[in-house]
Amino acid sequence: MKAVVARELLKFARQWTRLVSALVRPLLWLVVFSTGFRNVFGVAIVEPYDTYVPYDVYIAPGLVGMVLLFNGMQSSLSMVVDRELGVMRLLLTAPLPRAWLLLAKLVATAVLSLAQALVFVAVAVAIGTDLPWWGPHVPMALLAMACTALMLGALGLMLSVSIRQLENFAGAMNFVIFPMYFLSTALYPLWKFQEADARWLLVAAQFNPFTHAVEWIRFAAHGKDPGMAPWVVLGCTLVFFAVACVGYDPQRGLAPKRQGA
């Protein structure tokens, strides 16, 4: 566990451009997108807010989720490379429990995701976004972010089971990342779907685990009760990780076996 996590941290420290690229996307949404749509949001007061809030304040938890989501998906890309050419290729042949190796990889991914999310929050506060960045609710918010990072990292591990080539990663981006993000409350509350009479989009958003992850972060950041969101996130984490463990089991693996293997 220590070796895998330390390796990922050292690799990330040498590739500082990864941090820049991870922050550019959400900061553009925070600065440009929220400015253009500042007057669109604010028609109604939604939980956990007790009054009207600027649009940049509303989407900030969703942008934290964006950082966690994209890093979790990038972990599946790195897992594909490592499994074929890197250290994971050797570790997966070692006489160690596959579940423990995958857990070490998952923890490393979550640590990196959480670190990037915290840097984004610091930058957002520095540029003037009014966020509840300090108070007794901070441990609850950190827990929500950490659990979301674990869930999305486990999702990345599960996807890496079936992604055998780097070229297929673009498909995962189009069919997993963007639907999860846009069919959630990251950019707009659920009543927007109701207002547009888009019932099937509303149902899809309600069943989207990323919706519950964003709501957990949003409610925790304001010290409010997140309801069932933590249980949905934790349950999905266990399911995704269990499927990944089965997929990486050489006896019961879900991934297609190579010729001659």
Rank of each mutant, 00 (worst) to 15 (best):
Met1Thr: 08
Lys2Ser: 13
Ala3Asn: 12
Ala3Phe: 10
Arg7Glu: 08
Glu8Asp: 14
Leu9Phe: 09
Leu10Phe: 14
Leu10Gln: 12
Gln15Val: 10
Gln15Cys: 09
Trp16Pro: 13
Thr17Gly: 11
Thr17His: 15
Arg18Ala: 14
Leu19Ala: 15
Leu19Thr: 15
Val20Thr: 08
Val20Asn: 09
Ser21Tyr: 15
Ser21Val: 15
Ala22Val: 12
Leu23Phe: 10
Arg25Pro: 11
Pro26Leu: 06
Pro26Phe: 03
Leu27Phe: 06
Trp29Leu: 07
Leu30Phe: 12
Val31Met: 07
Val32Cys: 12
Ser34Pro: 08
Phe37Asp: 02
Phe37Gly: 05
Val40Gln: 09
Val40His: 13
Val43Phe: 09
Glu47Gly: 10
Tyr49Asn: 00
Thr51Arg: 14
Pro54Leu: 01
Pro54Gln: 02
Pro54Lys: 01
Tyr55His: 00
Asp56Ile: 03
Ile59His: 04
Gly65Pro: 04
Met66Lys: 02
Val67Pro: 04
Val67Trp: 01
Val67Cys: 08
Leu69Lys: 08
Phe70Gly: 02
Phe70Ser: 11
Gly72Ala: 04
Gln74Phe: 15
Ser75Leu: 10
Ser76Leu: 14
Val81Leu: 12
Leu85Trp: 15
Met88Thr: 08
Met88Gly: 06
Arg89Met: 09
Leu91Trp: 11
Leu91Gly: 05
Leu92Ile: 07
Thr93Phe: 11
Thr93Ile: 10
Leu101Ala: 05
Val107His: 07
Thr109Cys: 12
Thr109Glu: 10
Thr109Trp: 05
Thr109Ser: 15
Leu112Tyr: 05
Leu114Gly: 02
Ala115Pro: 04
Ala115Asn: 07
Gln116Ser: 13
Gln116His: 13
Val121Lys: 03
Ala122Arg: 07
Val123Cys: 10
Ala126Gln: 05
Gly128Val: 00
Thr129Phe: 05
Trp133Glu: 08
Trp133Arg: 12
Trp134Gly: 11
Val138Gly: 09
Pro139Phe: 01
Pro139His: 00
Met140Leu: 15
Met140Ile: 05
Met140Val: 06
Ala146Ile: 08
Ala149Asp: 05
Leu150His: 03
Met151Ala: 02
Ala154Met: 09
Leu155Gly: 05
Gly156Ala: 11
Ser160Trp: 04
Gln165Met: 12
Gln165Leu: 13
Pro179Phe: 04
Met180Lys: 02
Tyr181Lys: 06
Phe182Cys: 03
Phe182Trp: 15
Phe182Tyr: 10
Thr185Gly: 10
Pro189Glu: 00
Lys192Ile: 09
Lys192Trp: 14
Phe193Ile: 04
Ala196Ser: 13
Ala198Trp: 15
Ala198Pro: 13
Trp200Asp: 12
Ala205Ser: 13
Ala205Cys: 04
Asn208Val: 02
His212Tyr: 10
His212Ala: 11
Ala213Gln: 01
Glu215Thr: 03
Glu215Tyr: 06
Ile217Met: 06
Ile217Tyr: 01
Ile217Thr: 01
Asp225His: 09
Asp225Asn: 13
Pro230Val: 03
Val232Ala: 01
Cys236Trp: 05
Cys236Val: 10
Val239Trp: 09
Phe240Ser: 01
Phe241Gly: 01
Ala242Leu: 12
Cys245Trp: 02
Asp249Ile: 03
Pro250Leu: 06
Gly253Trp: 02
Ala255Cys: 00
Pro256Met: 08
Pro256Thr: 00
Ala261Cys: 11
